[in-house]
Computed example of a mutant assay.
Amino acid sequence: MNYLILDPSQKTNSGEFKISNQDRIVHILKVLQKKEGDKIKSGLLNDSLGIFKILKITPQEILGSYTPIIKPKRRSPGINLIVSVQRPPTVEKILELAGVWGVQSLEFRLATLSRTEYLTSPVWKEENIKEKLILGMEQGGNVFLPKLDLGFVPPGKNIPFEKKQSISERVSSPQTFLYLDKKGKFIQEFLPLEEKEYSILVGPEPGWTKTELEIFRKYNIPGVRLSSSVLRSEQAVSFFLSQWENSVSRLEGQRIRK
């Protein structure tokens, strides 16, 4: 934890913040070795970065005050990650990466070759998803919680899953899409980035089918190449976000010099 992310729901009537999550309490006391009167770099969800001062510690909670210092801005252009259903450990890694970097939104949807047995995992529960996103945000110092959308309803007891909208159906909406593909163009070839938002399609482990690729061509969606190597899904997301940030930074630098 590099930053403690506070939620407005933790604010008490007196204006202080109460931390009752036992994992965070243990981390603050045992790992960070903080005590009453100490300060922690912090952030208020979707608002600001600042300092949290510990006022009181009990076995059940930590009470403290929060002082905002700066108002960060969302990344621009915004990135909407649209990821095909992956194996649960991969989903957890992608959630943390999305939280670290600060994507605008994150969607998980079924692709043709997605493994539907993965939908039985508890990883899709809202509280588990938010926990992984927050862990990433606390690592990266990002205060903006990505908007989340599942293109399916996970199965329940004796109830099969329900598909809402697949990736192939999703691309018909009026957005600027790019899909990750080893045969695509490098990000630098798409410069300058003139749109306010870009939606990035991440395929399943077996890859895109011919039918899906034909649909992408139908809607004039270009492919993005990240490496000459075959990447795991979480590696592809990490490579993309890193290369995208580098390209945007260079572009901004060129504009400033002009």
Rank of each mutant, 00 (worst) to 15 (best):
249 S>R: 15
157 K>D: 04
219 Y>R: 10
99 G>V: 00
193 L>A: 05
12 T>F: 00
217 R>F: 04
214 E>H: 12
105 S>T: 13
131 E>D: 09
180 L>H: 07
22 Q>D: 07
252 E>Q: 14
106 L>R: 10
101 W>C: 09
254 Q>M: 09
164 K>W: 02
50 G>A: 09
130 K>Q: 13
158 N>A: 02
245 E>Q: 14
57 I>R: 01
246 N>S: 10
202 V>D: 02
207 G>I: 07
170 R>K: 15
128 N>Q: 12
253 G>W: 09
24 R>W: 06
138 E>R: 00
129 I>K: 05
71 K>E: 13
76 S>W: 12
114 S>K: 04
215 I>D: 08
20 S>R: 11
141 G>F: 02
57 I>H: 06
64 G>R: 06
209 T>M: 02
110 L>W: 03
179 Y>T: 11
157 K>T: 10
109 R>W: 05
85 V>G: 14
108 F>S: 13
237 V>E: 11
244 W>R: 11
222 P>I: 04
82 I>F: 00
16 E>H: 10
140 G>D: 07
150 L>D: 14
24 R>P: 00
47 D>A: 13
19 I>E: 03
231 L>K: 03
61 E>A: 07
105 S>W: 00
71 K>N: 12
20 S>A: 09
122 P>D: 13
105 S>A: 13
187 I>W: 06
185 K>P: 00
40 I>T: 08
239 F>A: 11
129 I>N: 09
169 E>K: 10
196 K>M: 01
61 E>N: 08
167 I>V: 15
65 S>T: 10
194 E>N: 14
68 P>C: 03
183 K>I: 00
193 L>S: 02
180 L>Q: 09
155 P>K: 08
120 T>R: 15
70 I>M: 00
127 E>S: 11
169 E>P: 05
113 L>N: 14
178 L>M: 11
208 W>R: 09
73 K>L: 12
191 L>V: 05
87 R>W: 02
1 M>Q: 00
11 K>V: 01
52 F>P: 07
173 S>D: 11
161 F>D: 04
143 V>C: 05
199 S>L: 08
2 N>K: 12
88 P>K: 05
52 F>D: 01
90 T>Y: 00
209 T>S: 15
46 N>A: 03
25 I>W: 03
99 G>D: 06
175 Q>M: 13
258 K>D: 05
146 P>R: 04
175 Q>K: 15
1 M>F: 06
69 I>V: 11
237 V>Q: 14
137 M>G: 03
159 I>P: 00
159 I>A: 04
131 E>C: 07
97 L>P: 04
161 F>A: 02
85 V>N: 13
206 P>D: 05
185 K>R: 14
98 A>W: 11
224 V>H: 01
74 R>W: 08
82 I>V: 14
196 K>A: 06
28 I>H: 06
44 L>H: 03
246 N>I: 12
